[in-house]
Amino acid sequence: MWADTDVKAWLARAADSDVWWSFKSSTLTIVAAGATLLIIAIALLSPLLAPHTPFDPATLSLSDGLKPPVFWSADGDWTFPLGTDDQGRDVLSSIMYGTRLSLLVGFASVVVAMVLGITLGLLSGYLGGMLDAVIMRVADVQLTFPAILVALLIDGVVRGLISVQRHDEIAIYVIVGAIGLSFWVQYARTVRSSVLVEKNKEYVQAARVIGLSPLLIMVRHVLPNVTGPVLVIATLNLGLAIISEATLSFLGVGLPSTEPSLGTLIRLGNEVLQSGDWWITVFPGATLAALVLAVNLLGDWLRDALNPKLR
């Protein structure tokens, strides 16, 4: 329960802060934040907002196939404002649902990476010794391999272990796991170095003397210090994760074409791009670019805002 005054005080403090000031003074950032929120809102509400349910084969009808966008040709149909693909799937609805999937995969894999990275970073920094050496060596090795490659490897292994049919069902978990696992190193390194700095400070020593659990100390005192950097990494990673998912789906090892994400939509559309049905690729492509651009702008701004040296 927060008292009213607490909230007000917090808001006042927030409004007074450097970060807020820097946010207010950058139009581009405000636009990016607005665009991100808008895209997220539309994606979340897609079951309510979307005119069709493109993932349900029972609602698709081939007789609606290949309709052009309404503003492009007189053959357009207002039921399908951005046109349809060759299965009669509404492009607008597909984009809404597809964005939702892409965002879901993006957020989920960032969370996986963050939890894993922070935990390992804390353990590694605080306990040190063998564990630290092993974790950091593994991190080194993993840095060898770009995220997309790690994700591809994990996907390939899972394909070897289970049947194709099962693979389509669990594709989304595989993707989240694969992308999440490929991004943890940055968090772990950041948290670890922060722990190393704090570990020997006097207040930590004092807390240890009065018998507080070391883990509690770390969580209470060290984590808040790394919130900023972790947030910056997370925001930038979100953009990368969304791109990674799209790339995997484009390569045909991501989400199946019956439940397409933005990347899958682009792959499907790319196959017919030269025949003049440009809308099947261009709209999902533009949505993807806009989403990632907005998220990256936010991440960029956040990094500069939290690193006053650069201002």
Partner: peptide, 14 residues
């Protein structure tokens, strides 16, 4: 081939 199969899936879903 794959697109024909997808279309059949939709037709049978009905």
């Amino acid at each position: 081939d794959e697109k024909i199969c997808q279309a059949v899936v939709a037709m049978l879903a009905k």
